[in-house]
Each structure stands twice: as structure tokens, then as C-alpha cells.
Simulated scan of single mutants.
Amino acid sequence: MPWTKDDYPNSWKNLKKSEREKAIEIGNALLKDGYPEDRAIPIATSKAEEWYKNHKKS
């Protein structure tokens, strides 16, 4: 089941809004590629945090 802005993993509730939206985007792509939720969540979290850190600098 894909995640949305209103329905996402509890662990993403403390991410900044733009960071959470990126995590949702990445997480949904991982799910579409066949990753199980328990792997997609930490990968998407890590990638979204990395994206936010790099995005903030520009």
C-alpha cells in the first residue's frame, strides 16, 4: 500500500515536512521495486535525510 502525506510510517512523523515528503516519494518507489516495508522504511528515511542535508545547502 503506497504511503501518502496523511498516511505514512510512524517513524517519519518527526521528520521535517519536506524531508517526510521525500521519504514518502523514495519509500513508494522502493515498494514499487519490490522492497518489503520493513526494508523500505529505513532506506527511505536515510536517503531523505541525506537529500535534505544536501538540498538545504543549495
Rank of each mutant, 00 (worst) to 15 (best):
residue 3 W to R: 06
residue 11 S to E: 11
residue 57 K to P: 03
residue 38 D to T: 12
residue 37 E to G: 05
residue 23 A to V: 12
residue 43 I to D: 01
residue 30 L to S: 00
residue 43 I to C: 00
residue 18 S to A: 08
residue 38 D to N: 10
residue 4 T to D: 08
residue 48 A to C: 10
residue 46 S to T: 13
residue 27 G to W: 00
residue 8 Y to L: 09
residue 1 M to N: 14
residue 32 K to T: 02
residue 47 K to W: 05
residue 45 T to A: 06
residue 41 I to N: 02
residue 24 I to M: 04
residue 25 E to N: 13
residue 45 T to Q: 09
residue 54 N to K: 15
residue 37 E to K: 13
residue 1 M to I: 15
residue 44 A to R: 00
residue 18 S to R: 10
residue 40 A to T: 05
residue 54 N to I: 03
residue 52 Y to T: 06
residue 48 A to Y: 00
residue 25 E to A: 15
residue 29 A to C: 09
residue 14 N to D: 14
residue 51 W to P: 14
residue 3 W to G: 10
residue 30 L to G: 01
residue 17 K to Q: 08
residue 50 E to K: 10
residue 23 A to C: 11
residue 39 R to F: 06
residue 15 L to W: 01
residue 31 L to K: 09
residue 18 S to H: 02
residue 39 R to T: 09
residue 20 R to M: 09
residue 34 G to T: 02
residue 51 W to S: 14
residue 18 S to T: 10
residue 49 E to T: 13
residue 30 L to I: 03
residue 42 P to W: 08
residue 22 K to M: 12
residue 6 D to V: 12
residue 37 E to T: 11
residue 7 D to V: 12
residue 46 S to R: 13
residue 12 W to T: 00
residue 17 K to P: 12
residue 47 K to E: 14
residue 11 S to W: 00
residue 41 I to W: 06
residue 37 E to V: 12
residue 30 L to A: 00
residue 40 A to Q: 01
residue 28 N to D: 08
residue 16 K to P: 03
residue 8 Y to V: 13
residue 9 P to I: 01
residue 53 K to D: 15
residue 45 T to V: 07
residue 19 E to M: 07
residue 26 I to P: 00
residue 55 H to T: 09
residue 36 P to Q: 09
residue 33 D to C: 01
residue 37 E to F: 06
residue 8 Y to A: 11
residue 23 A to W: 04
residue 50 E to P: 07
residue 1 M to S: 15
residue 23 A to Q: 08
residue 38 D to L: 04
residue 46 S to G: 04
residue 30 L to P: 03
residue 57 K to F: 11
residue 27 G to I: 00
residue 28 N to F: 03
residue 41 I to F: 01
residue 12 W to I: 01
residue 55 H to D: 05
residue 14 N to T: 09
residue 21 E to M: 11
residue 11 S to Q: 09
residue 31 L to C: 04
residue 7 D to M: 09
residue 34 G to Q: 04
residue 2 P to C: 05
residue 22 K to S: 04
residue 3 W to P: 01
residue 10 N to M: 08
residue 17 K to E: 11
residue 10 N to Q: 07
residue 37 E to P: 06
residue 21 E to I: 08
residue 38 D to E: 12
residue 24 I to A: 06
residue 42 P to K: 07
residue 55 H to W: 07
residue 1 M to G: 15
residue 20 R to F: 03
residue 44 A to E: 03
residue 43 I to L: 03
residue 5 K to C: 11
residue 38 D to C: 11
residue 54 N to L: 13
residue 31 L to I: 11
residue 45 T to R: 10
residue 7 D to R: 14
residue 41 I to L: 04
residue 35 Y to N: 07
residue 52 Y to S: 08
residue 1 M to T: 15
residue 49 E to N: 13
residue 25 E to G: 12
residue 26 I to V: 11
residue 44 A to L: 03
residue 19 E to R: 08
residue 31 L to V: 08
residue 22 K to D: 06
residue 41 I to V: 15
residue 8 Y to C: 09
residue 24 I to R: 01
residue 39 R to E: 13
residue 57 K to V: 14
residue 33 D to W: 11
residue 30 L to R: 04
residue 4 T to S: 13
residue 7 D to G: 06
residue 52 Y to P: 00
residue 10 N to H: 04
residue 15 L to K: 03
residue 49 E to S: 14
residue 2 P to S: 06
residue 6 D to H: 02
residue 4 T to H: 06
residue 15 L to E: 02
residue 12 W to K: 01
residue 37 E to S: 07
residue 27 G to A: 00
residue 26 I to D: 04
